[in-house]
């Protein structure tokens, strides 16, 4: 019984494997954040090139962006697209995701694959396909090509988020509603839509963020009158180096962080990604 008094605390042997894993993993996450850190570092520096460590703080580049008519025009085009594209994809995506979850028919999987395909098809191919269509339709010089491109590319994201919500929805609730005498239309608007609202909200955020950042297809279908912010960046970077792009990029990063917060609050990041 006396050995109970000897309560010496011992250190467990070091877990080198776990330490190694954390070091390697830490570097990988650092590598992932590196571009974003560098952008932020450069955007608030008065010099055209990044400095490490930073020596001074300045909003020069933000000022330049918000006084340049070219950047402001691009910003307006991008915002206009978000305003047009988000509600349309939401309506299309929500109705489709819900209906397909409730239907069973041969070729359902093929249709689902088709709906998600814009995420997988090489964007350069999607780009010329839509460019050629826009040309054939005589849409040169209009915003139509951009609208269609952004609808196509944002659509699968809404499908995905709404599907998550629909699969969490107990079909018994709809059955109960219809049992109480409500028709399918009434049930859809009074029961289903309110219950899948988180998925719809997250879908809206996705659609907006995707539209705002889309570049691969936009670069094909944009026209000199209608240039989005990413296309503007692309054209600039391709030709010259403009440090104001750092400031524009910070806006993108802020938007994506904001989007993340909304998605986390609505259906949770882990569910969509």
């Amino acid at each position: 019984m006396d050995n109970r008094v000897v309560n010496k605390k011992k250190k467990p042997p070091r877990d080198w494997g776990a330490m190694f894993l954390w070091i390697v993993g830490g570097f990988i996450y650092l590598f992932l954040t590196l571009p974003i850190l560098v952008i932020i570092l450069s955007a608030f520096s008065p010099n055209p090139y990044p400095e490490f460590p930073p020596t001074s703080f300045s909003l020069t580049w933000f000022n330049e962006v918000f006084t340049s008519s070219e950047w402001l025009e691009a910003l307006w085009t991008s915002i206009l697209l978000v305003i047009i594209v988000t509600p349309i994809t939401l309506i299309l995506g929500t109705t489709a995701a819900y209906a397909i979850a409730r239907l069973d028919f041969p070729g359902k999987q093929a249709l689902q694959a088709l709906m998600m395909s814009p995420l997988m098809i090489p964007h350069v191919v999607l780009g010329i396909a839509l460019l050629y269509q826009a040309t054939s339709m005589g849409w040169i010089g209009t915003i139509n090509g951009l609208v269609i491109a952004h609808l196509v590319i944002a659509f699968p994201y809404v499908i995905r988020t709404v599907s998550v919500s629909v699969s969490n929805l107990d079909p018994a609730l709809e059955a109960a509603s219809m049992n109480l005498g409500a028709g399918p239309v009434r049930t859809f608007f009074k029961v289903t839509v309110p219950l899948i609202k988180p998925g719809i909200m997250a879908g809206a955020v996705f659609a907006a963020v995707t539209s705002f950042g889309e570049i691969s297809i936009s670069a094909f279908v944009s026209s000199p009158n209608w240039v989005t912010v990413p296309v503007r960046i692309f054209n600039y970077v391709d030709q010259t180096f403009d440090p104001a792009i750092n400031a524009v990029s910070v806006i993108f990063i802020l938007l994506s962080v904001g989007a993340m917060i909304i998605i986390e609050r609505t259906i949770g990041l882990t569910k969509v990604f």
Binding site: N7, K8, K9, K10, P12, P13
Partner: peptide, 9 residues
């Protein structure tokens, strides 16, 4: 006993 946990003492 199996070694999955290291005892405090």
């Amino acid at each position: 006993i199996a070694g999955f946990l290291y005892p405090t003492t």
